[in-house]
Design a protein around this nucleic acid. Structure first.
Lengths: 344, 344
DNA sequence: ATGAAAGCGCTAACAA
DNA sequence: TTGTTAGCGCTTTCAT
């Protein structure tokens, strides 16, 4: 015995009741006399009785806990989203258990399965940039585990999804660069496997097309590790500058890639001539030199919405079959980094 | 029944063994014949059997999970520390369950108790800036729950602790400002309840004393919410500027306070004349305008060390009575924000 | 209104 | 070498 924790048995013994009577009294069952209830409740309070949630989970196959799987909590988007998740979950009486995949598909699988075997009541998943095989998630989902995808979603599994309007966000940012007079806009993004990368690329393309700027394939660089490795960013930029036609602006497509690119360009000292805008939820873009133009996702709201949908599924009496994909608007915050430098 | 999960019973039934035989075969017990083992293992594999960790926890009173309580994962120090924690924990076969107190003592208590009741094998705690009452943690600890404090530690509980050398870190940063010629150095810090705030204040004072600069009480401002609220930062700075003697430099004592202060000062446009340095683990201080001089904590290593000590306690046969407090060196990264501006 | 007993999935002491 | 049984903490049917 690790701790000498107080159990229902102790109460029963002390009060000379059966454990079932105590259990019922504790839960306020109508079949228990007021007197007994009072006795039990008071004694429980006195000895500081706490029900053992593990025993409950074993019995009821549920835990009032929600599992979260994200790639990196140090990514501002995710820490904000998690705050949104918690804000709803705690109010509804659910605990939130956070795990990180670090952009590894293997780690993601371990995390999902750990959550499942620990009987979380539902799962909030944002896929890793490496993930290809979704079968194990699909199976889990088909077995009845409620799952909501957020941010990095997938077509392969039919369930609720919540994400930002990545298409429009990217389109507006790109258009903004075009309005500033930039014509050779490069796009640095993460793994092409990611839904968000595809959507942002499409938004970028749409803006170019709308303004009759030909799309140039060599202006798009992928960082398959999603910016976890500095070298891949440096390489992408280097390649960009090897092209015959050099870009006059860069539009980056994810949190870490945005700040890392900004840093690399700063060191290259070519930044001055470059227009720069990127997706990121950093709180400090304003403090950068030059201040950073960003596409900001409604991370907190995405977390909230996903959690609401998940709890709705968890608590639904009958299996949910009507799924929705909620798409929340991004915000373009224009600062100096994307503004056309006045020619001297 | 929520999921039709495979249990030991199913294997037993299918193979016509008793559940105990199956259990033993699965765990490779020496008392089981090679043949039976093979049979069981193969069938288990075939039907994709996974042991139920909840049942195990209930039985063994342990979960191979470590609970973590921090104030904010969006704070870079903590997300790095958590990565350090995970790096050790996963290698040793422990899962990591992260919860946030959001600097609320009440929330912290809920989290700690949730972890305890879920039978985590040990706890890694960094206190909230509000925490005064440590009794419930003390009791838990005395009942036998292994606990290691990290970063924001306490004298009131006798156990392992891991923290940065806040005293020296603050002292060196302050001294650096002094060497730059600043004489009126203000200090903005978080709640005076926090160990780290006290240590950093002492380091600051020590540097002043060493260089014969009188300590001025009104040059120290406390943000009791630890920078969770912008207004308290603005107020602190405002008050500082109301003093007869205005500061010529500011030394900030925590992650969020540092970046928020920097932002507020920037808006005030008085930044130019001010020397600025602060504790923070942000990855992007270099990109600031001006680039930020920081005291960086070895967050990853702190997380690792704390986890090693915790697992050591968890796995120790006899109660650990010899406790240590590990103090890891900080790093002063000097950039432009603290350099004396050349007078025109 | 209360109690006895079974069972959630698993392990282990004890039997055989 | 394998099986029987009890028990971890709790809820719940079925008796009483």
């Amino acid at each position: 015995m690790k701790f000498d924790t107080v159990t229902i048995k102790d109460i029963a013994k002390a009060l000379n009741f059966s454990t079932s009577t105590v259990s019922r009294a504790l839960r306020g069952s109508y079949e228990i006399s007021a007197e007994t209830k009072k006795l039990v409740l008071e004694y429980a309070e006195k000895i500081n009785y706490r029900p053992n949630p593990i025993a409950l989970s074993l019995k009821e196959r549920r835990s009032r806990a929600i599992g979260v799987v994200v790639s990196e909590i140090s990514n501002n988007f995710f820490s904000e989203a998690i705050n949104g998740i918690e804000s709803i979950a705690y109010n509804r009486g659910y605990h939130v258990i956070i795990t990180q995949s670090h952009e590894s598909a293997a780690r993601e699988k371990v995390n999902v399965e750990h959550h499942a075997s620990r009987s979380v009541d539902g799962l909030l998943i944002s896929l890793s940039s490496e993930t290809v095989d979704l079968n194990y998630i699909k199976e889990l989902n088909e077995k009845g585990m409620p799952i909501v995808f957020f941010d990095r979603i997938t077509d392969e599994i039919d369930t609720h999804k919540v994400t930002a309007n990545n298409y429009l966000g990217a389109m507006h940012a790109t258009e903004h660069l075009i309005f500033q007079g930039y014509k050779k806009i490069a796009h640095i993004t993460s793994s092409p496997l990611l839904s968000i990368a595809k959507e942002r690329l499409n938004g970028y393309k749409a803006a170019l097309e709308k303004h009759n700027i030909p799309f140039n394939d060599s202006f798009v660089k992928y960082c398959v590790h999603g910016g976890m490795i500095l070298e891949e960013i440096e390489e992408a930029i280097e390649e960009l500058y090897k092209e015959k036609i050099k870009p006059d602006a860069i539009f980056t497509a994810s949190d870490r890639i945005t700040t890392l690119c900004f840093g690399v360009l700063k060191k290259m000292k070519t930044k001055k001539e470059l227009g720069f805008a990127g997706f990121t939820n950093t709180k400090v873009g304003e403090l950068f030199n030059p201040p950073l133009t960003v596409v900001k996702q409604p991370a907190f709201e995405i977390g909230q919405t996903a959690t609401e949908l998940l709890i709705q599924m968890i608590e639904s009496k009958r299996p949910v079959v009507d799924f929705e994909t909620r798409i929340l608007d991004t915000e373009l915050i224009i600062r100096e980094s994307s503004l056309r430098k006045v020619e001297a």
